[in-house]
Design a protein around this nucleic acid. Sequence first.
DNA 1: CTCAAACCTGATGGATCCAGTCGGAAATCA
DNA 2: TGATTTCCGACTGGATCCATCAGGTTTGAG
Lengths: 160, 160
Amino acid sequence: MSGGEESGTRGLHGTGAVAFSTRGEYGVRFMVALARMDHGNPVSLTEIAEVEDLPRAYLEQIVGSLRDAGIVDSARGAHGGYRLARPANEVRMGDVLRALEGPIVPMACLEGDGSACSKTGSCSVVQLWSRVRDSVSEALDSFTLADLAVPGAPITLKGR
Amino acid sequence: MSGGEESGTRGLHGTGAVAFSTRGEYGVRFMVALARMDHGNPVSLTEIAEVEDLPRAYLEQIVGSLRDAGIVDSARGAHGGYRLARPANEVRMGDVLRALEGPIVPMACLEGDGSACSKTGSCSVVQLWSRVRDSVSEALDSFTLADLAVPGAPITLKGR
DNA sequence: CTCAAACCTGATGGATCCAGTCGGAAATCA
DNA sequence: TGATTTCCGACTGGATCCATCAGGTTTGAG
């Protein structure tokens, strides 16, 4: 760890590997806020952007991905807004993050059908990346939106 | 623009979240190659760069991180090169990748001691990111370099 | 019908960081 | 001494991504 002085540079998200972008962060915060505020009527984007202190125009574009994935429903017009397409306890966080960030692919050789790497079969390293990918998916899918939307309750993790 | 692919340009890694950079890829390939070629004498960087078809100058800078982390030993001068600092079955891939890519931090609020996020305690989402981080670390540490250096043997995964 | 609120789309700029190169200094062996 | 190889710092070009803005479309309320 000799180079590890970190230099304290700002720029969020600068440090660390295996990182999600702000798309993932903002999108998740939107979903949690929506789950808390959704009492049947659509909740406007402007309202959520204010509560969570997020840039409205940018959030608009992020939420589009969630809508296309069928995770939220939108209602246009006056008094329109967004609603959960399913109950919060049926929304897996893995689905949310895959919609926001695209497929979980720790290394290029796993992209698509795996045809990117010519050494398939003779390459033992691909086992490592596959396992990482599956672990991340499992971790994300072990949470539902309901787990995160309830503020006080500590989460009961299954397994370990 | 940017059309020219020649001289083996690498511009991959475009797609997917939670991705490692080429630092991680090249570094791991270096380690696997070194484990196979290490018979007691130091192996020169140039030799490995040729076998794995990696840019030598860039690899040089990557291997510096492995050296600083105490994962490989270097010998300077003529007939110098690199050796494993420990037997391959005692080298966890998590150590290798942390040395190459820095800490595994899926979201900015987990950086350092966690002081980056002011809502610590009241934020339930941090549980999700923590779990992802731990899952990745576990997956990486469940492999040793020896698992990857043996070419033919398929890896016996514990669990699942 | 008219108006306003909200959603939707596309284009655009700026900052950051990655990937790769280059040249030279220090160290070791023959 | 001279050849070989690691080591170190600086530099650059390009890609990616965050974020914003403007304009258009749809819908519901009065």
